[in-house]
Amino acid sequence: MTTAVEPIASPPAQPPIEARERMFHARGLARIYGEGEAAVTALAGVDFEMFAGELIVLLGASGSGKSTLLNQLGGLDSPTRGILHYRGWDLGTADEAGLTQFRRNAVGFVFQAYNLIPSLTARENVALIAEISRDPMSPEEALHLVGLGERMDHFPAQLSGGEQQRVAIARAIAKRPEVLLCDEPTGALDVRTGITVLEAIEHINRELGTLAVIITHNAIIADMAGRVFTLSDGRLVGVRENTSRATVRSLAW
């Protein structure tokens, strides 16, 4: 499998976190499903901040609340309690239309199951998003960024899993999002293919300065992150800062 992503010796030095723009700001963020006896606490009040250009991995077992947190960040769900601000804008009190605009303009999503439109080719899947964006890159450029320049006119059913996931990444970044949210992006892929997908995400994070948040239950992947948030039982039990980020190529699981 070929890729346009250049292997690099080590991640470039980044300015100290505090000097960068604060993207997300959460205080006592909680999400409780149901009421009374049947209430299930998915997020039990977490505090954090996320900055522009960071690559953050959310680590945790199934049911730890990492997906709930990602849904909050992506404007797919609203908090039950606490505050969540995006660049000073209150996501918690935003209405449906506001959240749609937020997803449309600021967020790129990558799903474990790719979620490509089967009736559109790779190029068209990306172009579809470009159609509704304010300042999109061309589908060709986006697909080149993820190393899929040659297979643009193939339909999803004609692409391998890794290729489909890279189309999904191209689709997510074509709008030049400020935030890239990836939910178990390698969950359905083998190691080799998973590496190419992670490389694509890292490449975007580095080249475009996009804040990338990756959910995984695979602790090894956490080594590529700048910071690692560990969740357990709906609580943020640890934030680890990697002094040196591992290259994606060096990861193995």
């Binding site: 992506g74 797919l76 449906e96 239309a97 749609t100 605009q101 997803r103 449309r104 303009n105 967020v107 999503f109 799903f111 979620n115 439109i117 089967p118 579809l128 998003i129 509704i132 689709r171 709008k175």
Partner: peptide
């Protein structure tokens, strides 16, 4: 449903 939900998540409005 899945395809349409994906579009919604990607920022398509309900009308679109």
């Amino acid at each position: 449903a899945r395809e349409l939900a994906t579009l919604r998540v990607l920022g398509f409005t309900r009308g679109e």
